[in-house]
Nucleic acid binder design. Structure first.
Lengths: 112, 112
DNA sequence: CCTTCACTTAAGTCGTCACTTAAGTATCAG
DNA sequence: CTGATACTTAAGTGACGACTTAAGTGAAGG
């Protein structure tokens, strides 16, 4: 059940959620620990955590009455990979174009 | 006026917009060219393009009555960089933890 | 037991997002 | 000039997202 890119990018498109990820990348934390820095209610933070879990970037486990959250390693790799592929594709294309223009110095624009 | 990560990730969190980027990574195209493959009205596609422009990942220029859109190189780099930094941070942390556990084989959990 | 603590569930509000249709405004072709 | 083309502007709708408050559940501590 690897989540789709929609869910993944959507999860990253919020500053609170990115801040949570940054906090978690320095080690696991409880829900209240994660909520403390933010100026919002605890349920709100829990909802953000749910989004991050649905996106497959964090995992959590409840022991006693405290839920501990940690990074899900590799959860971001699909996003990273998509971006990398796109960038590779058009950089390669620009390189080809650059070479073409270098070889035919007085062409007006974009070859067919 | 580099756009923030919110805008950038938000722009990527939609399949139509990612499809437009994939199309554009194979070369520039007019608005109608971009709209053709999609089962939605032209104004809708134009709105998606506006989001992509605001996010700094595409640029467009109008000549006569046709607007030609192209990739804005480097527009994705901020997103790519953020993901990369986070991944680096927690992988490094996991490595340290792994080393620690290897050196002290019978520790219960997570060092303080 | 009886609180307190750490969440969890539920419900509701308000704004934003992804569309739509309808009616413009410039080109450009004949 | 006339009409078709290629958008552009405007306005509206329905769903979803980011919160809120209020009330519940279940483990721990005294």
């Amino acid at each position: 059940m690897t989540p789709d890119l929609d869910t993944l990018f959507q999860a990253l498109a919020d500053p609170t959620r990115r801040a949570i990820l940054e906090r978690l990348s320095r080690g696991p934390a409880s829900v209240s620990d994660l909520a403390r820095p933010f100026d919002m209610s605890l349920p709100a933070v829990v909802q953000h955590l749910a989004v991050l879990e649905a996106a497959g970037v964090v995992a959590s486990e409840k022991v006693g009455r405290v839920r501990t959250c940690r990074i899900e390693p590799g959860g971001l790799s699909r996003a990273e990979q998509w971006i990398h592929e796109r960038r590779a594709a058009w950089e390669q294309r620009l390189d080809r174009l650059g070479g073409y223009l270098a070889a035919h110095p007085d062409m007006p624009e974009e070859p067919k």
